[in-house]
């Protein structure tokens, strides 16, 4: 561990942007038409959180829980596993989130939907939309091909954004605990992107 701590951020990210973005292109091609359908499911979850009918929290937590478990398995372990020695640790983090979301969904009411506008609610909506719409669009907007788009449910970053957003739109105290890993994930991902930009 001491040895690991003596490294800089850039020493710990062993792949460049070309490998990273092409990995998502290959993922999208392999799981087609998932990349087309899952943003629609994500948008559906946002609408559900906005309208907040009874039982919405359970559905949302279940769907997001499954998304985190899948991302840990497919993206982190399966695809980043051969590229990054730390991938199993990242997968473990993501699985904890998936399990916690499923548990919260099962204990119905742990993430009860909440009506009524507030700053948190508005911010949540923005983050959720960032995950569902803006994040995938960032590929073509930055001049990369569409097929490299990272979409909710298949890529970790938009999934973390959507989760954070929907939790902010929900009520209850448990949601604060459920926000920890998505926030940590987004911080780690930012660090990886900063390191890749230096490559």
């Amino acid at each position: 561990m001491d040895a690991v701590l003596s490294y800089n951020l850039t020493d710990l990210v062993p792949f460049g942007p070309e490998t990273y973005h092409r990995l998502f292109a290959r993922l999208n091609a392999a799981l087609w038409p998932g990349p087309l359908l899952l943003p629609l499911v994500g948008a559906g979850l946002v609408v559900l959180a906005w309208r907040a009918p009874r039982g919405a929290g359970r559905v949302t937590a279940g769907a997001l829980g499954l998304a985190w478990l899948w991302v840990g398995w497919d993206v982190l372990l399966g695809r980043f596993g051969p590229l990054l020695w730390a991938a199993p640790y990242a997968a473990a983090l993501v699985w904890i989130q998936g399990a916690a979301m499923l548990l919260a969904g099962a204990l119905a009411g742990a993430t009860p939907a909440r009506r009524g506008p507030s700053v948190g609610h508005g911010l949540g909506l923005l983050l959720a939309l960032a995950g569902v719409v803006a994040w995938p669009l960032s590929a073509p907007l930055s001049g990369r091909p569409w097929i490299q788009a990272e979409v909710v449910g298949l890529a970790p970053d938009p999934t973390a954004l959507l989760t954070l957003g929907l939790l902010l739109m929900a009520g209850g105290r448990v949601r604060w605990g459920l926000m920890v890993i998505p926030v940590v994930w987004l911080a780690l991902s930012t660090a990886v992107h900063v390191a890749m930009a230096q490559v």
Binding site: P14, T19, R79, P82, L83
Partner: peptide, 13 residues
């Protein structure tokens, strides 16, 4: 080969 050859199983790369 640090970074430059870490391209996984991507056939094109």
């Amino acid at each position: 080969t640090w970074i430059t050859f870490n391209v996984g199983d991507d056939p094109v790369l």
